[in-house]
Design a protein around this nucleic acid. Sequence first.
RNA 1: UGGGGGAUCGUCUAACGGUAGGACGACGGGUUCUGGUUCCGUUAAUCCAGGUUCGAAUCCUGGUCCCUCAGCCA
Length: 562
Amino acid sequence: MAAPSDFIRNIIKEDVESGKNNGAVITRFPPEPNGYLHMGHAKSICLNFGIAEENRDGICNLRFDDTNPAKENAEYVEAIKSDVKWLGFDLKDRIYYASDYFDKLYECAIKLIKKDKAYVCNLNSEQIREYRGTLTAPGKNSPYRNRSIEENLALFELMKNGEIKEGEAVLRAKIDMNSPNLNMRDPVIYRIKHEPHYRTGKRWHIYPMYDFTHCLSDSFENITHSLCTLEFEDHRPLYDWLLDELKAVRHPKQIEFARLNLTYTVLSKRKLNMLVADNFVSGWDDPRMPTISGIRRRGYTSASIKDFCARIGVAKRDSVVDLALLEHCIREELNNTAKRVMAVINPIKVLIDNYPEEKIEYFDFPYHPIDEAFGFRKVPFSKELYIEREDFMENPPKKFFRLAPGKEVRLRYAYFIKCEDVVYDANGEIKEIHCVYDPKTYGGSALDGRKVKGTIHWVSAKHAISAEVRLYNNLFTTPNPEDKKSITDFRDCINPNSLVIVESAKLEPSLASALPEEKYQFERLGYFCADLADSKEGAPVFNRTAPLKDTWAKIQKQRLNS
RNA sequence: UGGGGGAUCGUCUAACGGUAGGACGACGGGUUCUGGUUCCGUUAAUCCAGGUUCGAAUCCUGGUCCCUCAGCCA
């Protein structure tokens, strides 16, 4: 694949060529450990780590932006590390924590106070908001703005020692209450939180804010290019102001790009957290979730995610990427890598009337239609079979190529069969379909050159294993559940059929040995993956990763619409 | 009616004053023991109005629309 190119890579290329930073390229991926990583993060990871890989001696750090002890914990840290590793980027032990910089950051705050560029403010949060002004009205100076450096130092010391209550004091940068950019109206850079931190314990009673922490952490790590999403564009002046005032040796360049949006899903940690907390899904790794761990459990591979990220590109304009593109990426990969097997999800019984009662034939079927390197497996054939309910119609429309009274089809790789009779139960439901087979079509082709239009999949009833199969559909019914104009609460759009559990699908016996995370194509149905958590050898559980494209379904839909 | 951004096929994204290209989707067809794959083809875009220029998606002027900022979240 051609090397990716986008406006950020172009900027970096120019910087390297002009000798900026001595040609170094150091990026970072800075998640807050307050939730699991999702596809939006995957975009950022592929960008930051990708750029590092593409440049000679390029480096990308994983840095936990853990300055809010109320929301962060070690479980999230572990989950994030594992997701980044699974995506296949080499961390080289370059794992950092903003919390490791608390001492250095504190020193920077002192320095700022000594420069008379920061002050302790005793306005409460409501007052701070009032003094800040509005989008159109300027703010006004805090009455505490002109405290002496000594007083500020003393007060900040008290804050640090836990001697002031939460909410009663903050440290603010002294910038400009008249700035049209709200972020420059004396932003809070430290607040009091009498809350233990998952890494630093009870050592601190004050915690630095994002704006203060981020630019300095970037600088400490010698980051050259600090890539973030569009909403931080307004923060760039503050990012630069802090580094300038503190005379930082390293002054990274912040560049903003548009965050990822995907149709039929939500990509905000807050919303995903709500789905988990309110049990709309089973957890962060529910296969319906657009989290890295969810999508992995669904059966997506890291290669397909990287491919997707390369295809969507990086730009500044807001965009919503079609989920179909993600599906395309996984189908393309699995088409080349997944073993083909047969499974019947919605079984209906077929009896081959002219097949001997006790006879069992074992066929050697290929795991892949053209590539023999995939190997072969034994598949039993007998008088009683299951086929897919949807593959039989009593009164078929014109273009139905499957089984119907009087019609002949091919059982994949096995025999031609012809439907002779249909037997009903007391409720008028089909109980079984009676067919005859043509022994001269052994292996699935007729010696006389006779053709059949349809080939259907099947399993031997006696030999089939029963297993749970989970059919996943879009989590939301609308393409854009995050659209504020048309939707008041994204939860109103949750798809009630996002998960359909098939308790006992009938699988060919070879599938009994499927290993967790092993990927298959169930012929004519879709790509399936043995569940990471619930699948056991001998007792598999399968998740549908993506259905195969289905032009027959499309034809039917068109018929309905016309 | 403050500031900061953005507008190119249905969607995503190229083109950096010189043929508006690619991918996904959709549609049509060939091949096929998966109505899959594959192959071929079709569809379809520069927000608007002026200007500069031999030539404008690109430069200038003026509009329009969209996103974003008033956490002691990140």
